[in-house]
Nucleic acid binder design. Structure first.
Lengths: 230, 230
DNA sequence: CCACCCAATTGATATATGTCAAGCGTGGAT
DNA sequence: ATCCACGCTTGACATATATCAATTGGGTGG
């Protein structure tokens, strides 16, 4: 564990309040590893051996059932994932694969649980982190349960526009088939959803989306503070 | 706050490790209240003033968006709800209403947050509780994203059968329209889903469901340890 | 520069689910 | 006992979404 890696961990809110010696202890046996694109990191029924910290790259968490597969969420650096599974010493509930070449710090789950019971500051931060993760999934659940495919796409565009500086032009940060899976539809249906949004001022050119009538788009999308991420 | 109510709180894993004086302090200003059926307890955008403990009755957590409404989960006694919102001092992410006459203990959210920062044992238990809640929503999310309506119903029947003693006959604990909403479909579609399950040995007589071919049902449902509750 | 690969698109069609309307049945109130 | 309210069911139809097949088109390696 080199100093720079320790600083990356320290910079995350989750670990910001942890005592120095507890942090060192937790990072013992941790290792930073680079994976190429399209590599499966773990599968949903595997036992959780590591808390993962995505340092660089991009990771997709997905799930399978009844011969179907779907993207549950995307992880962007720098962020931890599978904290809940690591803390409860249970199975990963989701599978993970790299979408691009990625650097991941792997911390033994047992170390995390030990730190949890020894370090008051860490426990407090973990509570906050888990509560935020919980709200994140609730949002995703509401999104898919209460909105149609076209509405989900419209809201995705609105959120991306906000994140990319409200310029009216966004660049999709992921492949369309991944976006389709994340929005809970097929790639074919995503193409048609974009076509449906044409009368609402959406122009598509490859990965570039142009929003010509923001008002009309919002009328259709009905964005909600309680569903869409900030 | 009477002794019996304190004992109810103490019996929950979440509060089992809390120091006596912290518990007393937290329960100061708490009150036990009885609500009739069909009463809205709070709405999703309201600020979270109380952590709720359902002592008796049944509560539905639901959400609204784009002129649609859906049941997110059902709370059965004895259990807490909206812990994550209470701890982060944010809005309830869901609305709540009683399904039947219910007794609810309401604990000021500020008290819970204070107890959280003062009581090590409580913080540890809260971490565990939040991790379990998180996994619960992930399951629900996978359920709706990866299964069809008929598959969700089939798995619901299998889980209920297990919970009610594997007798092959179950009694629906909720109205069919509520079940429909929880499974993410309309009441009409639920009726048809039951009809679809007829060839798989499902007989319906009011709230009583008879499972005549458990094997066939499982083949259709493909139950998963990682989606269906224990 | 060309050829190939693969994501994306488009069309035709099938399936899943929702909507609207009507009718049925049971349980509670008068 | 009768009537009414309401949840449930059923049918006809509309919409949403998936599937299968064919084609397009951009990027990359040879």
């Amino acid at each position: 564990m080199r100093t720079s890696e320790k600083e990356i961990v320290r910079s995350l809110p989750l670990f910001s309040e942890m005592a120095e010696d507890h942090l060192d202890e937790m990072l013992t046996g941790s290792f930073l590893q680079r994976f190429p694109a399209t590599v499966v990191l773990f599968s949903e029924s595997d036992h959780t051996d590591f808390l993962h910290v995505l340092v660089d790259g991009q990771v997709e968490l997905y799930a399978s059932a009844n011969n179907r597969e779907g993207t549950m969420t995307l992880i962007k650096p720098v962020a931890t994932f599978v904290l809940a599974s690591a803390l409860t010493d249970s199975a990963y509930q989701l599978s993970a694969r790299t979408l691009e070449s990625s650097q991941i710090l792997m911390i033994p789950a047992q170390n995390v649980r030990t730190a949890m019971s020894n370090d008051q500051g860490f426990a407090q931060k973990a509570v906050r982190e888990l509560a935020l993760c919980y709200h994140g999934v609730v949002r995703a659940y509401k999104n898919i349960k209460l909105r149609t495919a076209v509405e989900r796409l419209a809201n995705y565009i609105i959120v991306q526009n906000r994140r990319q500086g409200e310029t009216g032009v966004i660049k999709l940060p992921i492949e369309k088939r991944t976006l389709a899976s994340m929005l809970g539809m097929t790639p074919e249906n995503l193409s048609r959803a974009f076509a449906t949004l044409k009368p609402y001022g959406i122009r598509v050119d490859g990965a570039e989306i142009c929003i010509e009538k923001p008002g009309d788009l919002e009328t259709l999308a009905k964005p909600s503070e309680l569903i869409d991420a900030h």
